[in-house]
Nucleic acid binder design. Structure first.
Lengths: 348, 348
DNA sequence: TTTGACAATGCAAGCGCTTACATTCATATT
DNA sequence: AATATGAATGTAAGCGCTTGCATTGTCAAA
């Protein structure tokens, strides 16, 4: 029969719920129920359906499912960049936690560009995200409005601001950095320079700098005179900035860096300039990424529980989706890790 | 009017194509054409529609679109893990390239578990992936069958095997490692130990080890006596493995590691054991990740053009989707980077 | 003026699923 | 025996979009 032949050559079609229904001898509704609310169907029927599913290698079409159910079991996240280890780590934990609860992660990266974030949010929502994870609070009001209008459960991570409209899970960047800087000042430093990530559109970086300033003021340093340079996140940029700072006359005795990556760059610059760390120069970071331990000497920094943060954010979000109640913000503790790059100020 | 009030309180609904059509005074078909094939609509109409879209903040529902168009402009990738810098980097480039061409990336990570991969592939296809990026060739036949049946354009990266059914873009792991090991032997080493990632289900790791063996044989070393230990990818594991190898009697003069991360761990172990590198002990890596430069001394390794690989994979895949022709595999060149951890074998 | 061709648009089917509602049937209750 | 109950399943509407086909209107050629 020619017909058969034609049929066979027809390009493969992924199995649909109809195929499963036919094979199992039930209606599509029953198949659907088997997959979504198994207790509603008779055990015998269930077995038949499950077998049919397995035999055909059936997987429900996601788009169709989202459309019909108005629920995607997908949670979106917009992060600045995946190349930053702290986000990669937190996100990994976030993902694992979601996965364990039957949710899927959809990521977009904004590359620290505020305008991109709005567009990406729309895209993620169009893709059916049931909830959103955002990093930090710094963004236009329209984004929050959009989230509120559409009633999308949202969590902000890496910052902590209990008074804000949207719940957050993170830590107090300002307080943590202030405490750390106090600790640094106890080592007798008076000439301090700061290398920070760009503070515009980045409340975490901004708050850390604010923490440094407060501490400086408390320690009798003229805040106006504080040398602060802002550079984009990279080892290279950290090194360059440090090099500039260290070759100026009256060089600082300590380089307080806004994050570990910049600090590692600074460390490299110091090495190139033959400055001994911490004897001639102290350097500090923030975040406690893997690199901080590997560095030689080990980087003195502030430990941030990134994984824990990701995990908690996931749980909070899931709870919000499933119970539609607004949870409390959660504050995480940071911890000073004093390795080898912070020493007493040289007495010279 | 009570009605009005009720209407206002009704929960927000994302704007649909109908809303846009109504506002612009056209049919939904025209709106759709405006978005997908703009030249088919009258410029004046187009303007009206575009304005309506902007005014409503309309974004086409992705699921509906995929269902109707049978095309998602989404490309899937299954990678072992994002926490491995080489994949993160390659994937970032892959993503950027896709983005520039109007495609979106959908990632899943298999955590090096073969059985997970099949499930994830099904998920990605159910989500409408138009094409797939896979890492390495090691996987069950059913996966390839599924891809072929459904006619999903596929590329394998990080490996290169021109004779394979599916096109690849990558490099010859065995040849590269063999050449590198030859180079190592030129430094007079006779007692070499190998720290590799697990070779089961990982053709890249396996081929690198094979390359080492071939080189060893060529250099008159009994391959049977080669100390090879396999550990999971992490600095910690690399350190532990190295520690074991270095504290055994008759310790090796060079540790050839399957990747940089393990090598960095080995470096740490050597430091802990007060062995000078490279005077007392040589250590080599593979991949040339950022850490390799930062390490002190800098890690001698093999540079792999991860970004380039990601970029090319993306272009190939896009071409396959758009022209449905099968392209040639592409081979990339690797390069030995001799930094500071490879020295002459100690003469003791 | 009539006709044909073509550009611009509308109509409506259908993509694969979920779910409210209707139906059936076995069992418990009176 | 008659009826109520509820568990199991089926029927069919509709989610928001694309696209083949039909319709309309315009303009050039005959």
């Amino acid at each position: 029969m020619r017909r058969e032949h034609t049929k066979k050559r027809r390009s493969f079609r992924a199995p649909t719920i109809d195929d499963v229904a036919k094979l199992a001898g039930v209606s599509t509704a029953t198949v659907s129920r088997c997959l979504n609310t198994p207790d509603m169907v008779n055990p015998d029927t269930r077995v038949r359906v499950i077998n049919a599913v397995a035999e055909l290698g059936y997987e429900p079409n996601f788009g169709a499912r989202v459309m019909a159910a108005k629920r995607s079991n997908t949670i979106g996240a917009i992060i600045p960049t995946m190349e930053n280890a702290i986000f990669a780590r937190g996100l990994q934990a976030f993902q694992e936690e979601l996965d364990q609860n039957g949710y899927t992660l959809l990521v977009a990266s904004s590359s620290y560009q505020a305008d991109l974030e709005k567009k990406q949010l729309r895209t993620l929502l169009a893709r059916g995200a049931d909830a959103m994870l955002l990093i930090g609070f710094a963004r236009g009001e329209e984004i929050y409005d959009m989230l509120t209008d559409r009633q999308v459960p949202t969590i902000v991570a890496w910052s902590y601001k209990p008074e804000a409209q949207v719940a957050s899970v993170g830590f107090d960047n300002k307080a943590a950095m202030r405490e750390f800087t106090d600790f640094i000042f106890k080592h007798g430093h008076r000439k301090v320079a700061v290398i920070s990530a760009p503070t515009a559109d980045n409340d975490r970086a901004a708050e850390r700098v604010a923490g440094i300033k407060e501490s400086a003021a408390d320690n009798g340093i003229d805040v106006e005179e504080l040398d602060i340079v802002e550079v984009n996140y990279s080892i290279e940029n950290g090194a360059r900035a440090a090099h500039g700072l260290l070759t100026s006359e009256d060089r600082p005795t300590v380089l307080v860096c806004g994050n570990d990556v910049l600090a590692i760059g600074a460390l490299k610059a110091a090495r190139d300039l033959k400055l001994r760390v911490p004897e001639d120069l102290s350097i500090t970071g923030f975040d406690d990424i893997e690199l901080a331990q590997i560095a030689d000497p080990g980087l003195t920094t502030v430990h941030v529980p990134h994984r824990e943060m990701g995990r908690r954010a996931a749980n909070l979000l899931i709870k919000m989706v499933e119970t539609s109640q607004t949870p409390q913000s959660e504050k995480l503790a940071t911890r000073i890790v004093n390795r080898g790059t912070l020493g007493m100020a040289p007495t010279s």
